[in-house]
Design a protein around this nucleic acid. Structure first.
Length: 159
DNA sequence: GCCAACGTTGGC
DNA sequence: GCCAACGTTGGC
Protein backbone atom coordinates (compact mmCIF):
# COMPACT_ATOMS: atom_id res chain seq x y z
CA UNK A 1 0.00 0.00 0.00
CA UNK A 2 1.18 3.47 -0.84
CA UNK A 3 0.37 6.87 0.63
CA UNK A 4 -0.38 10.15 -1.07
CA UNK A 5 -1.36 13.72 -0.51
CA UNK A 6 -4.07 15.33 -2.62
CA UNK A 7 -4.59 19.06 -2.66
CA UNK A 8 -8.03 20.54 -2.96
CA UNK A 9 -9.45 23.99 -2.50
CA UNK A 10 -12.15 23.74 0.16
CA UNK A 11 -14.10 26.58 -1.45
CA UNK A 12 -14.46 24.32 -4.47
CA UNK A 13 -14.41 20.82 -3.02
CA UNK A 14 -13.11 20.13 0.46
CA UNK A 15 -13.00 17.08 2.68
CA UNK A 16 -16.51 17.79 4.04
CA UNK A 17 -17.79 17.64 0.46
CA UNK A 18 -16.07 14.32 -0.07
CA UNK A 19 -17.56 13.01 3.16
CA UNK A 20 -21.00 14.11 2.03
CA UNK A 21 -20.88 12.46 -1.38
CA UNK A 22 -18.88 9.43 -0.26
CA UNK A 23 -16.95 8.86 -3.49
CA UNK A 24 -15.84 11.31 -6.13
CA UNK A 25 -13.79 11.48 -9.31
CA UNK A 26 -10.50 13.24 -8.53
CA UNK A 27 -10.42 15.06 -11.84
CA UNK A 28 -9.03 18.30 -13.20
CA UNK A 29 -5.37 17.50 -12.60
CA UNK A 30 -3.54 19.21 -15.47
CA UNK A 31 0.09 18.77 -14.64
CA UNK A 32 2.07 15.87 -16.06
CA UNK A 33 4.03 15.07 -12.94
CA UNK A 34 0.87 15.03 -10.86
CA UNK A 35 -0.88 12.96 -13.50
CA UNK A 36 1.93 10.42 -13.44
CA UNK A 37 1.51 10.05 -9.69
CA UNK A 38 -2.23 9.50 -10.20
CA UNK A 39 -1.35 6.68 -12.57
CA UNK A 40 0.78 5.02 -9.90
CA UNK A 41 -2.09 4.86 -7.44
CA UNK A 42 -3.65 1.51 -6.62
CA UNK A 43 -6.97 0.61 -5.10
CA UNK A 44 -6.62 0.72 -1.32
CA UNK A 45 -3.92 3.39 -1.22
CA UNK A 46 -4.62 6.07 1.37
CA UNK A 47 -4.54 9.79 0.71
CA UNK A 48 -4.27 12.82 2.92
CA UNK A 49 -6.76 15.43 1.78
CA UNK A 50 -5.02 18.78 2.00
CA UNK A 51 -6.87 22.08 1.84
CA UNK A 52 -4.97 24.62 -0.24
CA UNK A 53 -6.00 28.24 -0.64
CA UNK A 54 -7.60 27.92 2.77
CA UNK A 55 -7.11 29.86 5.97
CA UNK A 56 -5.16 28.22 7.26
CA UNK A 57 -4.08 25.67 4.68
CA UNK A 58 -3.73 22.17 6.13
CA UNK A 59 -4.64 18.49 6.20
CA UNK A 60 -8.36 17.91 6.74
CA UNK A 61 -8.96 14.23 6.28
CA UNK A 62 -8.10 10.86 4.83
CA UNK A 63 -9.40 9.29 1.64
CA UNK A 64 -8.93 5.99 -0.06
CA UNK A 65 -8.38 5.11 -3.70
CA UNK A 66 -11.37 3.04 -4.80
CA UNK A 67 -10.68 3.11 -8.53
CA UNK A 68 -7.28 3.31 -10.19
CA UNK A 69 -6.44 5.80 -12.92
CA UNK A 70 -8.85 6.06 -15.82
CA UNK A 71 -9.42 8.82 -18.37
CA UNK A 72 -10.35 12.17 -16.84
CA UNK A 73 -13.92 12.86 -17.95
CA UNK A 74 -13.55 16.65 -17.95
CA UNK A 75 -10.92 16.72 -20.71
CA UNK A 76 -13.70 15.89 -23.19
CA UNK A 77 -16.28 18.25 -21.71
CA UNK A 78 -16.28 21.44 -23.78
CA UNK A 79 -18.18 23.27 -21.07
CA UNK A 80 -15.53 22.52 -18.46
CA UNK A 81 -12.54 24.73 -17.72
CA UNK A 82 -10.59 21.47 -17.77
CA UNK A 83 -11.53 20.71 -21.36
CA UNK A 84 -8.48 19.89 -23.45
CA UNK A 85 -8.93 20.10 -27.21
CA UNK A 86 -5.78 18.05 -27.73
CA UNK A 87 -7.24 15.01 -25.98
CA UNK A 88 -8.68 12.25 -28.15
CA UNK A 89 -11.21 9.74 -26.84
CA UNK A 90 -9.01 6.89 -27.99
CA UNK A 91 -5.96 8.60 -26.60
CA UNK A 92 -6.85 10.49 -23.44
CA UNK A 93 -4.21 12.85 -22.14
CA UNK A 94 -5.29 13.16 -18.52
CA UNK A 95 -6.19 10.74 -15.77
CA UNK A 96 -8.31 10.69 -12.67
CA UNK A 97 -8.80 8.27 -9.80
CA UNK A 98 -11.89 7.77 -7.67
CA UNK A 99 -11.49 8.68 -4.01
CA UNK A 100 -13.71 7.65 -1.13
CA UNK A 101 -13.91 9.52 2.15
CA UNK A 102 -12.41 7.56 5.04
CA UNK A 103 -12.24 9.85 8.05
CA UNK A 104 -11.89 13.51 8.95
CA UNK A 105 -8.92 14.38 11.15
CA UNK A 106 -10.30 15.14 14.62
CA UNK A 107 -7.71 17.94 14.74
CA UNK A 108 -7.33 19.86 11.50
CA UNK A 109 -3.59 20.09 10.89
CA UNK A 110 -2.48 23.51 9.68
CA UNK A 111 0.52 23.80 7.41
CA UNK A 112 2.27 25.72 10.16
CA UNK A 113 2.00 22.76 12.50
CA UNK A 114 3.35 20.38 9.87
CA UNK A 115 6.39 22.63 9.47
CA UNK A 116 7.08 22.50 13.17
CA UNK A 117 7.47 18.73 13.22
CA UNK A 118 10.99 17.59 12.51
CA UNK A 119 9.73 14.11 11.55
CA UNK A 120 8.01 15.71 8.59
CA UNK A 121 11.08 17.41 7.21
CA UNK A 122 11.08 15.08 4.23
CA UNK A 123 7.51 15.82 3.29
CA UNK A 124 7.38 17.00 -0.29
CA UNK A 125 4.63 19.41 0.52
CA UNK A 126 7.00 21.37 2.74
CA UNK A 127 9.77 21.66 0.20
CA UNK A 128 10.23 25.00 -1.42
CA UNK A 129 8.67 25.45 -4.79
CA UNK A 130 6.46 22.37 -4.64
CA UNK A 131 3.19 23.16 -6.32
CA UNK A 132 2.16 19.63 -7.18
CA UNK A 133 -1.45 18.82 -6.39
CA UNK A 134 -0.71 15.10 -6.15
CA UNK A 135 2.37 13.80 -4.38
CA UNK A 136 3.61 10.73 -2.59
CA UNK A 137 3.96 10.61 1.20
CA UNK A 138 6.18 8.17 3.10
CA UNK A 139 4.55 5.71 5.47
CA UNK A 140 6.27 7.17 8.53
CA UNK A 141 5.15 10.69 7.59
CA UNK A 142 1.65 9.45 6.94
CA UNK A 143 1.44 7.84 10.37
CA UNK A 144 2.90 10.90 12.00
CA UNK A 145 0.23 13.08 10.44
CA UNK A 146 -2.57 10.75 11.50
CA UNK A 147 -1.28 10.83 15.04
CA UNK A 148 -0.82 14.59 15.10
CA UNK A 149 -4.32 14.90 13.68
CA UNK A 150 -5.76 13.00 16.61
CA UNK A 151 -6.15 9.56 15.08
CA UNK A 152 -4.64 6.25 16.06
CA UNK A 153 -1.73 5.85 13.68
CA UNK A 154 -2.60 2.22 12.89
CA UNK A 155 -4.43 2.97 9.69
CA UNK A 156 -5.21 -0.75 9.40
CA UNK A 157 -8.34 0.07 11.35
CA UNK A 158 -9.64 1.95 8.31
CA UNK A 159 -9.97 -1.29 6.35
C1' DG B 1 16.32 22.86 -28.78
C1' DC B 2 16.54 27.50 -26.75
C1' DC B 3 14.42 30.79 -24.15
C1' DA B 4 11.32 34.87 -23.47
C1' DA B 5 6.78 35.67 -22.43
C1' DC B 6 3.02 34.33 -20.23
C1' DG B 7 0.00 31.63 -17.07
C1' DT B 8 -0.77 29.24 -12.68
C1' DT B 9 -0.25 27.95 -7.95
C1' DG B 10 -0.74 28.99 -3.44
C1' DG B 11 1.21 30.99 0.87
C1' DC B 12 1.20 35.20 2.93
C1' DG C 1 -3.74 41.50 -3.91
C1' DC C 2 1.17 40.49 -4.05
C1' DC C 3 4.63 37.87 -5.78
C1' DA C 4 8.01 33.86 -5.87
C1' DA C 5 8.49 29.76 -8.03
C1' DC C 6 7.40 26.84 -11.57
C1' DG C 7 5.25 25.03 -15.84
C1' DT C 8 3.86 25.73 -20.59
C1' DT C 9 3.80 27.78 -25.03
C1' DG C 10 5.47 29.09 -29.26
C1' DG C 11 8.61 31.85 -32.29
C1' DC C 12 12.89 31.25 -34.10
Amino acid sequence: MKFWLLKSEPDVFGYPDLARVGVEHWNGVRNYQARNFLRQMEVGDLCLIYHSNARPPGVAGVGRVVKAAHPDNLEFDVSSPYFDARSRPGEPRWSMVDIAAVVALPNYLPLDTLRQRSELGGLRLLQKGTRLSVMPVGEAEFRCILKAGGLNDSYGSFA
